[in-house]
Design a binder for these strands. Structure first.
Lengths: 214, 214, 214, 214
DNA sequence: AATGAATGAGACTTCATTCAT
DNA sequence: GATGAATGAAGTCTCATTCAT
């Protein structure tokens, strides 16, 4: 059980021995990071071997070390590169394009739940399970989140001031409005497909409640 | 200085080589499971070594194998024994002892947020990061959750029917009311102490909103 | 494959927990030696664990150490006690009871091939595979063999002098007459039951040739 | 003083830490198999450690695993590669080059006893002590032996038909003629050098008897 | 005498990493 | 840049043996 899918021990006699291809560093690095994200998220840092990452990319272990100096460095680079991804960058502006509150809520719900992509979930799992490896990155991330949050709060405050939204505990602390999404994410992370229905109901109630409250 | 304390008769033992202590299997197993929970949760399954678990208990590696036949078995035993812990067993009845809605809400909030103990968070982190190792246990857990949820919903429905609570999306799907706690948990898991203040605000807003909605 | 018959890893939950019985040292020692012969012969010295020996006897590992001070000692004691068994002690006198050459040959063949019991083969395998552990015992054994051989040769010489047997290379070096038995033994050791038919043929030809030569 | 000898540039390397040498897989595999044969034969499978094999080759333990995936695999590969060695391949044809029976016998005796090389004995000991690990290989070996035997028998039958050899139990079952060699082999395996003289006598008598019988 | 708990040593094996081509 | 061979360190697990009851 230690390794969910034990590959047969026999050496793969027939190797798909693809001719060595020489790629630009940037491309290779990206390939490696992608493979690393997939593996780290699925297996955890310690259980992921450079071998597997290399295998997924289709290069040799040694070649990984041409592009990164250590497993740790891969991990850090990965998480750093992800901080940007995480930020629902463009999303917020898209959400705000709404012309009335109703449309705003729809946008909000749709965009946010759509953001629960497998990749985003992978990042989230990584943060939860291996975050302790990268306190600095986490701290920055946290900081960035706080700032983004402040901006969003400001936008809401404006709406309230303009009388387009009601003043209530939710508009005063708008971040709270998004907490159910985290629940949905955790449900997916933990129970996988078995959580699909549940997530739908959450999303539904979420939308209804926002309509009632905003 | 470490050596200064040594009594004359003792052999030059840098490691305080304490006499072997003999305990009953039940006690040792419990000790080992506790140590394992701490380590697995902090480091993940793969990164936790039997050595560390043994060290934490203060016994030899080999002795661990007297009580468990493999690292996997420790993990499984641990998670199985935790399924029971997880269920907020008695909590719900305590919550319901409330005499009016206001007290009910206070109970609910207090009990639920107090349940975010380090141990509970450890279990949660384990479930998220290593849950894939134990699909069976997870499935049972899910099942049990669904049932508990149904019971709680029934209790709420009763309150609504009795006119003691308002009918609205939240009372119709009461599980939703607890989703912010998961957010709080994830915040703690990810940012640790840095999340303390945030969790407080969440809890606060959570309470206010429930008061408004129920 | 390392261990031909892997026992399931799970701890035997139900132990045949027989009440502790206290036996006289002699009896226990004998039991242990018997179990040891079986295991050592089947698995080799290194691959045999004290656990298995104890299990076979139905006692605890620790109890084995009450009767022997180490695994090595068990082995040596065993082989020493076997030196006597090995010598076809009484056999030769039984063979010589024959009244004529024909009966002598029949006795010789029958007694010798019957001596290829599983136990004797076990000892032989032990001597071949683990003999290097006990050079002293081996030396003594060799010595004893040489002596017995000399005695048998003398008996044959007498027969030849008396004109009851022909003088030829075989009677001059009578030990040679028994070499096919070793072949039969090795065949059994190596091929087990698959060698049965072959051994029969050997025995047959052996008998015929002796008739022709003596 | 240990430090006194150190040349300035050299690291404190008590072990003559020779530079890593890089060899082709074929060569290394062969080296490992040779070392393994020596060790397995001398100590038995279980008592032989990968460490010892690696040490004998002069490489690291880990490097052994670059070329073989497990100790078992080394063993199997070894025995499989030996099946071919064992067969007295070319020998028989060389024996048959004889121009008369006398020369045939000389060839037979010489070639056969010369085949009792240390390596051949090592293989034989392995077959006896660890054969049970590889029933398949043994079965094939047996089969091959039977066939070779049949061919040799046919050659003998021809000689008899041509009147160049006498018809007798030995020519009817020619395999029997070689049984003393196995005795000699076992004597060497068990008593080592102490058996040398005995083997000589056996060989001598063997030759004489064949002369008389063929 | 008997045993269950405990342990140090050591075995197999994996893996991140280095080296030479 | 790319790779196959090589390795030190570390991890899981087994086992002979000891200790206290």
């Amino acid at each position: 059980m230690t390794q969910a899918k034990k590959k047969p021990k026999e050496k793969a006699a027939v190797k798909a021995k693809r001719k060595r291809t020489r790629l630009s560093p940037e491309v290779r690095r990206k390939q490696i990071l992608e493979a690393a994200l997939a593996e780290f998220s699925a297996m955890g840092f310690a259980a992921t071997s450079i071998s597997r990452i290399a295998g997924r990319v289709g290069i040799s272990k040694a070649n990984v070390y041409v592009h990164f100096s250590s497993k740790d460095q891969i991990f850090e680079t990965l998480l750093q590169s992800l901080s940007s991804v995480g930020k629902s960058q463009g999303s917020w502006s898209r959400i705000q394009e709404a012309r009335d509150v109703s449309e705003f809520i729809d946008n909000l719900i749709d965009v946010t739940y759509e953001a629960l992509t497998p990749e985003a979930l992978a990042i989230m799992r990584l943060l939860i399970s291996e975050g302790h490896r990268i306190p600095d990155v986490l701290a920055k991330w946290h900081e960035a989140n706080l700032q983004g949050r402040a901006e969003r709060q400001a936008a809401i405050d404006e709406q309230v001031a303009a009388g387009r939204m009601k003043a209530n505990p939710l508009t005063e602390h708008f971040e709270f409005a998004m907490t159910p999404v985290v629940y949905a994410a955790v449900a997916k992370l933990t129970f996988g497909d078995a959580a699909a229905e549940e997530v739908e109901r959450i999303k539904d109630t979420h939308r209804k409640l926002l309509r009632q409250l905003l």
